[in-house]
Amino acid sequence: MSAFVQITDVTRVFGPKLSLGEKIAAKLGGNVETRSVRAVSGVTLSVRKGETLGLVGESGCGKSTLGRAIAGILPPTSGTVTIDGAPVMADGTKATTRVQTVFQDPFASLDPRMKVGHTVAEGPIAHGLTTRADARRYVADWFDRVGLDPAWVERHPHQFSGGQRQRIAIARALAMQPDVLICDEPVASLDVSIQAQIINLFLELTRDLALTSVFISHDLSVIQHVSDRVAVMYLGRIVELGPVGEVFGNPAHPYTKALFGSVPKLVLDADELVRFETIEGEVPSPLSPPTGCNFHPRCPCATTICQTGRPSMEPIHDYRSVACHHYKACLGKEEHD
């Protein structure tokens, strides 16, 4: 199986935007933040044709930034993203139509003053996927496909519920006939009973249209449900990558293990209280990430090498890898406890 989307050594740095005054203050030794944030740091990753890659991590881990880099919305500081061998940013600045994104908040991602049919139609018209004359029928087809009444194209976003708006956002993305769909926390702002509707729609559409997709979420149960493979991110780096069943069933990286342990699970079978497995401490500031392995200050099995040497992604077997110096020893040790 070959890579369809290839992400090679992508880094994205956000520098502080300093005003003239702040620059002068910084020169004079004032207390001005001049450090930059490496939101994504040297990520290499591939997505195979037709698969759903889950991208999971806590807030600030860089998963959304990576998603935007793959979509060609945000150019990486260094590194490349290619689809089927072709770079996503043709001239280095402009996004491609081959990747489309569904954003987190459907209340913010639709233009409040534009009829929703028009919102869905304008991309395909601009790129010649349909004609102005034919746009109505084209949009109605997509509305039907995502489970919306085609008669609703004349309405404005405020006339829809959150779930319906997310369907419109999905229709807008798919109407561009992309090869790759990026879903950036598409159900995070929806009610629980609506989440299931949107997840089902996603599963159905990616299967029927044979879409390749990257599904970004902080919700492990959602990731586990929709993904074929999963990449776990921590402080801008991928720490573990593998088939979803294996990673969830037997996490290799201490962070993955701790993350899974701290997610509250639905308690159904016992009246007694569950024990939380908590990770000590907090996520360090991305302004000054720890040396060596990013996770070492919170890691139960860190040694001196973790403070200095940055672990690279090592294959555990053909299709699974982890960035940890001690993943074998650590896991073994924990099991003996």
């Binding site: 060609g72 919305i73 402009k94 996004a95 489309q100 991602s109 561009m176």
Partner: peptide, 8 residues
């Protein structure tokens, strides 16, 4: 951002 990402 969505409009720019399309891209328009």
């Amino acid at each position: 951002e969505a409009a720019l990402a399309t891209p328009l």
